[in-house]
Simulated assay, not measured.
Amino acid sequence: MTARGALRLLGGAAVVLWGAFTVSFAILYLLPSDPVSIMLSQSAESLDPAQVQALRERHGLDRPLPEQYLTQLGNALTGDLGTSVTTGAPVTDLLAEALPHTAALAGLALLLAVLAGTGIAVLASWTRARWLRAALLALPPVGVAVPGFWVGLVLLQLFSFTWYVFPAVGQDGFASLVLPAVTLAVPLSATIAQVLARGLDEAWRAPYADTAFGAGASRNRVLGAHVLRNGSLPTVTLIGVLTGNLLGGTVVVETVFSRQGLGRLAEQAVTTQDIPVVQGLVLTGALVFVVAGLLADLAHPLLDPRLRGRRAAPAPRAVPA
């Protein structure tokens, strides 16, 4: 990657993070209520207007919106995401406490999704049995259509309440990760299988596959050396996008399985309109999205040698008359 390409990627990442911060700030501050009002409405104690005003001043909610925006943006650039309005804890501490739980869940879910989606697509592409191919290609649409919370409830009923294989709730050890990860992996694996199957079908019809067959290569050799490598390029980009979207899926899954993590933290922060926490979560999600996209861009040259060391074509030199 050239220096210009690296600067372009970093500039794009900065724009994405700034845009995520700005949009979240605008949406949250356009809501009809504010965190202090919500917090006081849930409290049994009644405060006089002077105390309410003091709370708003302490959290900077009495300042003009442009000043609040610039102050919070400047603090975010230095790594200070503020303090939670409802708990008073630093947002970075809340994120650091919840992130490992969600990272473990999302990592296992992504691994299962890649293995299952790749297995379905490769087997459907490789087999010559029409009935098996049709059955395999019918699975991804079902996986995409089924709601995630329904999958989680069915898994709970079967593997926790009927067969007692995995714990129903909590986060005690690897066993408690299995059902939430499978629930999160089902729609991801279906999407991966759909895109990869389409890419493999196009790769089988490409001229390089015919050339390899003409040179005497076996079907397995063509699949492993040519079809899978070239047909998986769109899927690599898709996996980067899905990785960035995993945070949204963990909200439902962590709620169904009563797990602590970024998803549950997001649910609580949105319910109480805890603006600093919500913005910290939005920035975290945007950062994950940017890093995943960057890794996908870096993986493309490994799969397609034509992308390695690509340079812009030099400008033609003038030919003297």
Rank of each mutant, 00 (worst) to 15 (best):
T2R: 13
A6E: 08
L9G: 12
V16R: 04
W18Q: 09
A20S: 11
S24I: 04
F25R: 03
L28E: 07
L28P: 05
Y29F: 15
D34S: 10
P35S: 04
I38D: 07
I38E: 12
M39C: 02
S41D: 10
S43F: 02
L47P: 07
P49N: 01
A50H: 10
A50L: 11
A54S: 11
R56S: 03
R58T: 09
H59S: 05
H59F: 15
L61Q: 05
Y69M: 12
T71Y: 06
N75M: 10
A76Y: 00
A76N: 07
L77P: 02
G79M: 08
D80H: 05
T83R: 15
T86D: 10
T86Q: 15
T87I: 07
G88I: 02
A89N: 12
A96L: 15
A96I: 09
E97W: 08
A98D: 04
P100T: 01
H101Q: 15
H101I: 05
G107D: 09
G107C: 11
A109F: 06
A109G: 14
A109P: 11
L110K: 07
L115F: 11
L115G: 09
G117A: 08
V122E: 01
A124Q: 03
T127E: 03
R128Y: 11
R128N: 14
W131A: 12
A134T: 13
L137D: 10
L139E: 05
P140A: 01
V142Y: 03
V144D: 03
P147W: 09
G148L: 13
G148E: 15
F149H: 09
V151S: 07
V154I: 13
V154Q: 04
Q157R: 12
S160L: 06
T162E: 13
T162C: 05
Y164E: 15
V165H: 07
P167H: 10
G170T: 06
G170V: 04
F174A: 13
S176F: 04
L177E: 07
P180K: 05
A181Y: 02
L184E: 07
A185F: 03
P187R: 01
S189R: 04
S189E: 12
S189Q: 06
A193Q: 06
A193T: 04
V195G: 00
E202H: 14
A203H: 09
Y208L: 11
A212F: 01
F213E: 14
G214F: 05
A215S: 14
G216V: 02
S218M: 02
R219H: 12
R219A: 12
R219W: 04
N220T: 15
V227I: 11
N230M: 07
L233D: 08
L233R: 06
L238A: 06
V241I: 15
V241T: 14
L242S: 09
L242I: 04
L247D: 00
G249C: 11
V253H: 02
V256N: 05
G261V: 05
L262W: 02
R264N: 14
L265K: 01
A269T: 00
A269D: 03
V270E: 09
T271C: 10
T272A: 14
Q273K: 08
D274M: 04
I275N: 01
I275K: 00
V277I: 04
V277F: 05
T284C: 10
A286S: 12
V290A: 15
A292E: 04
L295F: 11
L295A: 09
L298E: 06
P301G: 03
D304Q: 09
D304V: 04
P305T: 00
R306Q: 11
G309M: 06
R311C: 08
A312R: 14
A315D: 13
P316W: 02
A318L: 14
A318F: 13
